[in-house]
Every structure is written in structure tokens, then in C-alpha cells.
């Protein structure tokens, strides 16, 4: 795939080779293995979800993929090319875009300027006039100003376009981050909790927007706590726990996976003996420490 990957060109079906392929990725912080041997395939034209409890290593995985931290081991391939040795900005030029869990907006600039900076940075290294992405004006050629205006419009930020991002509520600032990333025209988009701060209605609209983006050929990897949104938009899910992949599959498969439920509610399910022993030691009378679903007899 070419570096700037004109997203309009790729059809969702032609995703035989994944746009982003991660192999055996491990990140160690001191003695703590934050990410352990993770494999991910993110195909173009689809939304893949990466979920897991707090501290499972999702953001660390993102950081390693885009080169913000150096992994202990592992490979990151983009459109078939190994980018593991490249710096953050070089990877970005190869087509990785992202948003951040903790906002990294340009808070003293207006919404319009945030998006514009994304576009201008792309123009500073890419002289080529690629067609605009499919989701904007159907891929027609656009002037820079029009492209910025369209992105702002698509994200529903028109009313706040001239407001400094530092004074926006989190939900809107997250959209600004997304718009800025889109202005750089990535082929792979990593989204770290983009929907936190949106209400239910906005979340539905946001899901539809993600769908449009994916349909235009973008490969999206989504980390999100809004499970309803994840289940709705993702075509496949990977579940991370303690830095390891514990499940992978369609949302339906993952939802009924016992290990996943354990990961979310606590690890008593597979080996409860220690807890029970502790409970008995403590003189607490607990009849059943293993989890039972809602409505199940306890």
C-alpha cells in the first residue's frame, strides 16, 4: 500500500492482508509486563475492537503501535511493510493516525485550527495531491479550507469551530482529536476511548460516523468502554487482560466467553479456592464466591 493510502481506493472486501498487523508485541516496564506477546490484525474497511478492564494494557499497545514507546519485542507492519524501526512521525507519515485516552488537543488553538494543523502537517511532508477521502464529498478534490470545513461539519463541530479547544467539554474535544487525525488522512486509525463524554444519542451518531469511515476503506482499531457502542459497530473484538489476549472473535462470540466475563468481574471464576480459603480464614460466611449471572440462582 502506498504511504498516504488514498482511502477511497480500497474496498472493504479487498482486505486480504490486514492494513495493520501486530506480531508478538511485548512491553515491559521494569519488572511489570504491561503487554505480553500480543498479535493483532486490523483489516481495512472494518472496525476492530480492543477491549479489556482498566490497566489491561490497551493504551500501552496503542503507544507501541504508533511508536510513542519502544516495545521490548515484537513487530508492527503497516500495509505489509515493517515499520517497527521507524520513529513516531515516520509511522504517522506511513498512515497511522490516533487519538488519545487523555486528551492531547492543542488547547490554545480553535477547533478549526486544530483540524487545520493536522491537514497542514500532512501537506508539509506530502506534496502529492491525493483525492480527498471517500467520506468527504465522495472523494472529490477539495481545497484545504473546504476539507477542514467538511471535517468540522461531519463531526458536528460547526457551532464551536472558532472556540479554543481548551474551553470545550471533553466529549467535543475528543471529536476534535478525531477530526485532526482524519485531516492527516491516515490508513489506520487508532481510537482510544473516543466516545467517552458523548450522550446516548451522540454515541449512536458517532457509531454511524465510524461505520462511514470504515466503509470508505479506513482500518479502525477502537478501544472503548461503552460496551454497547463496541458491540454495535465492531466486526471483531480482541480482549486484553493483564497484557495478554484472552479472547478474539465476533462480538457475539466474545460476549458469551466465560474468560471475558471473568476479566470484567474478577478472577474468581476459574480458581476460587484461594479466595474461599481466605474467606473462611476471615470468618466470613460466603456460600458461593464464583460469579453467577444476573437471574441465576445464588
Amino acid at each position: 500500500m502506498s504511504a498516504s493510502f488514498p482511502t477511497a481506493a480500497a474496498s472493504p472486501v479487498a482486505a486480504a492482508a490486514p492494513a495493520l498487523r501486530v506480531r508478538d508485541l511485548s512491553v515491559r516496564f521494569g519488572g511489570h509486563l504491561a503487554v505480553s506477546s500480543v498479535d493483532l490484525d486490523v483489516p481495512a474497511g472494518r472496525i476492530s475492537g480492543l477491549i479489556g478492564p482498566n490497566g489491561a494494557g490497551k493504551t500501552t499497545t496503542f503507544n507501541a503501535i504508533c511508536g510513542v514507546i519502544t516495545p521490548t519485542s515484537g513487530q508492527v507492519e503497516l500495509g505489509g511493510d515493517d515499520v517497527s524501526k521507524l520513529s513516531t512521525h515516520q509511522r504517522a507519515r506511513r498512515g497511522i493516525g490516533r487519538t488519545f485516552q487523555r486528551l492531547e488537543v492543542f488547547s490554545s488553538l480553535s477547533v478549526r485550527d486544530n483540524v487545520r494543523v493536522g491537514l497542514e502537517i500532512r501537506q508539509s511532508w506530502s506534496r502529492r495531491r491525493a483525492a480527498a477521502p471517500q467520506f468527504l464529498a465522495g472523494g472529490a478534490e477539495l481545497s484545504a479550507d473546504d476539507e477542514v470545513a467538511l471535517i468540522i461539519d461531519r463531526l458536528g463541530l460547526v457551532e464551536v469551530a472558532e472556540v479554543p479547544v481548551g474551553s470545550l467539554p471533553t466529549g467535543q474535544a475528543r471529536k476534535v482529536e478525531l477530526g485532526r487525525a482524519l485531516a492527516a488522512r491516515p490508513s489506520v486509525l487508532l481510537l482510544d476511548e473516543p466516545a467517552s463524554g458523548l450522550d446516548e444519542q451522540e454515541s449512536v451518531e458517532f457509531g454511524a460516523l465510524l461505520g462511514t469511515l470504515a466503509a470508505s476503506g479506513l482500518a479502525i482499531l477502537l478501544v472503548e468502554h461503552d460496551i454497547a457502542l463496541v458491540m454495535r459497530v465492531c466486526s471483531e473484538l480482541s480482549v486484553l487482560n493483564f497484557g495478554q489476549l484472552i479472547a478474539h472473535g465476533t462480538p457475539e462470540q466474545v460476549q458469551s466467553n466465560a474468560a471475558v466475563l471473568d476479566a470484567y468481574l474478577g478472577g474468581g471464576g476459574n480458581d476460587a479456592t484461594a479466595v474461599e480459603r481466605a474467606a473462611v480464614d476471615a470468618g466470613v460466611n460466603v456460600s458461593d464466591t464464583s460469579w453467577s449471572g444476573p437471574g441465576a440462582p445464588s
Partner: peptide, 18 residues
């Protein structure tokens, strides 16, 4: 604008390709 952006968030600029 890019300088201001870089002052606000270097890491975001890098992930945009700067």
C-alpha cells in the same frame, strides 16, 4: 499554528507526522 500546536502537545504533533 504548528509551533503553537507543538507547544501544546508534542506527542500529538508527532503522531500527525510532524
Amino acid at each position: 499554528r504548528r509551533l503553537t500546536a507543538m507547544k501544546d502537545s508534542p506527542v500529538a504533533c508527532a503522531t500527525l507526522g510532524l
